[in-house]
Design a protein around this nucleic acid. Structure first.
Lengths: 112, 112
DNA sequence: CTTTTATACATAAGAATATTATGTATATTT
DNA sequence: AAATATACATAATATTCTTATGTATAAAAG
């Protein structure tokens, strides 16, 4: 997941936001979408993604629908109502994080 | 360290940048400085800070000078030359991270 | 004047998150 | 025919942090 350790902790935010836009997505699709959007800068590994999806489902933030396409399984995930709320919350946290880090790293600027 | 998991991975960047500005600081001073700059939003825990400082020292990014002030020990840390270079690198990574996350989270905006 | 809070270090046990490696299976491209 | 892409999954390990605990001195509060 990129050369930077900063991405640690960001995966759930990314998953939720992508599902928030695309209505429903399957795991492999998420990895490809992230790769494309970031021009290869960020690669979601399967060992991180699938356990994360399972956890979000167990928490009731995602619901699954299994489909067979071209004789292969796809597990489509979509946000529940709870998942939508959590998405908003996670995006706010991201904005807070960015603001706080800019204060720490550019202490001479006042960031509104 | 705040309510958000996003800070995971950011501690080294914070430490290096603060030392880059203040010439030398001791551990407790770092915790107080971060608390003050972020108005209490971010609190560096000792269980995270001290091992991180020891690791940075072991890697040759920091050097230590022990002083006794008011009959109490202080371990002053300052950046080595290698530490200065790493600071620049970590700050670039932070800017990259923020840019990438904004692409993922605001895919309709083009971020330069 | 005694207890609490602040200063200042440290480490160990455990939780959380991700990497790396491995496995299964089908479809497509070389 | 072999390699790559699609699509899922998990186990072992690494990394980072939280929580809890420990030591010790100084200052503030009751």
């Amino acid at each position: 997941m990129a050369n930077s350790k900063l991405y640690k902790g960001s995966l759930v935010t990314i998953i939720l936001k992508l599902l928030n836009e695309s209505d429903k997505m399957y795991g492999y699709e998420i990895t490809q979408k992230v790769k494309a959007l970031t021009k290869g800068e960020l690669k979601i590994t399967e060992g991180a993604l699938y356990p994360a999806l399972h956890k979000l489902e167990a928490e009731g933030l995602l619901e699954v629908e299994v489909k067979k396409v071209d004789n292969r399984l796809r597990k489509y995930y979509k946000l529940t109502e709870k998942g939508n709320k959590e998405t908003v919350s996670k995006l706010q946290e991201l904005q807070e994080y960015i603001k706080t880090m800019q204060v720490l790293v550019n202490p001479k600027l006042i960031v509104e």
